[in-house]
Design a binder for these strands. Structure first.
Length: 263
DNA sequence: ATGGTTGCTTAGCAA
């Protein structure tokens, strides 16, 4: 869906290396013309971010890069205000996983939640602590901002409808009670799952493993979300998962997601 | 079933 001056189109995409996905991003921006796109897994320091390429398309870049791993950013047609990096916890903020800025009266955030590796390991503990801090961060935003739109790769499949094979994915780092409860805590703050609000009981995915021909078999997960504050719900006029971006040559393992609001 | 695929960085880690 094309955005226009009367609409606000916000997209999100885990690109799995922005340098490898420059052309994919360019194609998505040309096709969708989102007002803002939240990016995750830039996988590079700020200095290697292809800023001029997106500037040529009319996008400002606010990024928090990191060598090799993680890295989040925001591309926007108009400059975002009061850009913030991190959760405010020095230990968790040693990884670049959250960046946000304000557009008009909406704080827009790009988040890359830790995947968690395996239940019980150190990374799993970090994932839970990150989510706890994210819940607190959102709570603070909802007190100080009129609206909040939190987009990104949550590495959580909150519902069985978000998993291609429920049995196979039971008790994993993306389905365990510990993460599903925390996802629900975000909802309980007054956020809603923007895509699910439109898709009903549909089973659709935003990520497919590179292995096992998973995309062609449609063996995926829905782990990328736009969580919007409830005041925006009546203004939502569309949403989707741009699955076609997963069919390109050398794709990211994630597809972009998008949601549109009436201005 | 501990495989398989991709990216960053250069053999191993992370997803």
């Amino acid at each position: 869906m094309e955005s226009s001056s009367s609409h606000l189109n916000i997209a999100s995409w885990n690109v799995n290396s922005v340098r490898t996905r420059e052309e994919h991003l360019e194609r998505f921006l040309a096709a969708q013309s989102p007002d803002v796109i939240c990016l995750q897994e830039l996988k590079g320091e700020d200095a290697v971010f292809p800023r001029s390429r997106f500037a040529a398309m009319g996008y400002e870049a606010q990024i928090w890069g990191q060598k090799s791993y993680n890295g989040v950013g925001l591309l926007s047609k108009t400059l975002l205000k009061d850009v913030e990096r991190g959760l405010g916890d020095p230990e968790l903020d040693s990884e670049a996983r959250l960046i946000s800025g304000r557009l008009s009266n909406i704080r827009i955030a790009s988040v890359y939640v830790p995947q968690g590796s395996e239940i019980g390991c150190e990374k799993w503990d970090r994932k839970l602590r990150f989510l706890d801090a994210l819940i607190q961060w959102c709570k603070r935003q909802l007190q100080s901002e009129e609206h909040l739109v939190l987009c990104g790769d949550f590495n959580i499949a909150p519902d069985d409808r978000d998993v291609w094979d429920v049995k196979r994915w039971a008790n994993t780092v993306v389905t365990a009670d510990e993460v599903r409860q925390r996802f629900q805590s975000l909802i309980d703050l007054g956020l809603y799952d923007a895509r699910r609000a439109d898709s009903g009981d549909a089973v659709e995915f935003s990520w497919w493993d590179y292995r096992h021909d998973s995309f062609n078999k449609n063996r995926g997960l829905r782990i990328d979300f736009t969580l919007a504050s409830s005041g925006l719900r009546a203004r939502q006029s569309g949403s989707g998962i741009a699955k076609e971006m997963r069919t390109l040559e050398r794709p990211s393992d994630h597809a972009p997601i998008w949601v549109q609001f009436e201005a």
